[in-house]
């Protein structure tokens, strides 16, 4: 492993089915962009390297890969996560309304309460928008989340989102310092329930 890798982080992407979670993880060029990306089956997780302030962080990013449709997300999926990206579709108000459920689930299963959260309003390139940007921002602020709006075609924004999330995690030392000694394949069984220190503040990237 490279000497200059600062830390490894577990990041989850959650949200209702069809909001475009998986597409946030793709690099879009004309020949790979598939607007009908229904096939979330297949990919389990990804390792990605990201540079933040000159430091490399390695991310293990877990997408729910369609399991959310069947409500089969297990506690182990959430265990040890340091960052969460909550995604809704700006053209479907119902996906926004479900965010509270997702937050409840996070609260129930996540082993940390200083988890860094980012809200992503996705599919802003579509015309039939139902959700105003301010509604997203307000919700994010209320729940101390970072916030961006994005679309599959604005991959720069998505890249920024990951960087911002990682930066925020790195600024929350309790979230990652204890991990550096036990870095490895194991992505679970990390220490449980730190008290206090929940991340405040939100920011808007767009």
């Amino acid at each position: 492993m490279d000497e200059d890798v600062l830390t490894t982080l577990k990041i989850l992407i959650i949200g209702e089915s069809g909001v475009g979670k998986s597409s946030l993880l793709l690099r879009f060029t004309d020949d790979t962009f598939d607007p009908e990306l229904a096939a979330t089956i297949g990919v389990d997780f990804k390792v990605k390297t990201i540079s933040v302030d000159g430091n490399k962080a390695k991310l293990a990013i877990w997408d729910t890969a369609g399991q959310e449709r069947f409500r089969t997300l297990t506690p182990s999926y959430y265990r040890g996560a340091q960052g969460v990206i909550l995604v809704y579709d700006v053209t479907r108000r119902d996906t926004f309304a479900k965010l509270d459920n997702w937050l409840n689930e996070l609260e129930t299963y996540c082993t940390r309460n200083d988890l860094v959260k980012m809200l992503v309003g996705n599919k802003i390139d579509k015309e039939n928008r139902e959700m105003d940007r301010n509604e997203g921002l307000k919700f994010a602020r209320k729940h101390s989340m970072l916030f961006i709006e994005a679309s599959a075609k604005t991959c720069d924004g998505v890249q920024c989102a990951f960087e911002e999330l990682v930066e925020k995690i790195i600024q929350t030392p309790g979230l990652w310092e204890s991990e550096t000694s036990s870095r490895g394949v194991r992505l679970t069984d990390q220490e449980a329930g730190r008290s206090g220190g929940s991340c405040g503040g939100y920011c808007s990237l767009v």
Partner: peptide, 27 residues
């Protein structure tokens, strides 16, 4: 030996006891 040695890589869901590796960016 360690999956974090990769810069970028994706893992498929299990096919039997195998996970295939894919490109993390274009899959």
């Amino acid at each position: 030996e360690d999956m974090y040695t990769f810069e970028n890589v994706g893992f498929t869901k299990d096919v039997g006891n195998i996970k295939y590796l894919i490109c993390a960016d274009c899959e």
